[in-house]
Nucleic acid binder design. Structure first.
Ligand code: FES
Ligand code: FES
Lengths: 144, 144
DNA sequence: ATAATAAAAGATATCATTGTCTTTTATGTT
DNA sequence: AACATAAAAGACAATGATATCTTTTATTAT
């Protein structure tokens, strides 16, 4: 469904959000251990997320990654996915045709678009804050 | 969503089904032109589909690929996807956790599984014959 | 039998994704 | 100012997916 980059990026963002909610910034090492991801690769992903203002970062001692609580209210998963995987998941044809639209549809088009839209809506309607709040229930996990 | 192999495989199978419905076997060259796919790569995919009894093939002059009409009634898209992409699309965690289950869910689990199940149902409930019949409407396309 | 046709099989090549390693830049502490 | 910390940036490596090419096998037609 999503690329590895996107999977790690989503997990990392949720973890950063969770910790920021508790008032603490987190370092790359802490993140990659918390979400069980390859550290150097995760660094690259965090660079992209930082560049695209999904997360904030501060260099130097006591630096690290964080997200403002206010930003968590409006940040939805769709924004993260779009940064890391582009919008092909929202616009791409299920059968790989170059164009996907109602005018010249593939035989799976209408059935496929219905599900694609649900996925899109789910990602757009799910904010980081929702997931961070859910995480407080101690039911959900970010590794294995 | 699906791999290139799976996209080409689905398109190829639909085309073979369509032509078989008209009573004609089709060659690799005909298929790859009809669905606009790389020929040699498509050959490899058709080998997999043949080995897994999704399509039939006959070597030699007047040979080619075909599917029995009876088989089209029971062959659903899910079977094709499973041969070419495995079942990770049905069982994999949206955030990339090694296990996906209700016992130790990721924060996206329940929302994600809901959509994953819809996709699964759609693929299981859509038979090749349905798509082949739809193709007769001249509304749907298998390339560009 | 020979030649032609067409898929199967095997080997190899290309590319994007995934992943690592090293150097640089920014910031805080002593 | 010197040092330590931590992210940013750039170069490089490994892997798997995608794609091609060649050889073999099966079948049909002459
Ligand atoms: S054209 Fe294939 S999903 Fe829209
Ligand atoms: S555990 Fe993540 S989708 Fe099920």
């Amino acid at each position: 469904m999503f690329s590895k980059s996107c999977e790690y990026g989503l997990r990392a963002t949720i973890f950063i959000g969770q910790q920021s909610h508790l008032g603490t910034k987190v370092s790359l090492t802490t993140i990659s251990e918390a979400i069980d991801s390859p550290q150097a690769f995760t660094a690259k992903i965090l660079q992209q997320l930082t560049k695209n203002n999904i997360v904030n970062s501060i260099k130097g001692p006591h630096g690290g990654f964080f997200i403002e609580t206010e930003a968590m209210k409006t940040l939805n998963l769709s924004a993260i996915v779009e940064v890391l995987d582009g919008d092909s998941i929202y616009t791409g044809c299920g059968l790989g045709l170059k164009q996907c639209n109602d005018k010249k549809p593939c035989p799976l088009h209408f059935k496929f678009v219905a599900i694609r839209e649900e996925l899109k809506n789910m990602l757009q309607n799910t904010t980081l804050l929702m997931l961070v709040n859910d995480m407080e229930l101690d039911i959900f996990h970010l590794k294995t």
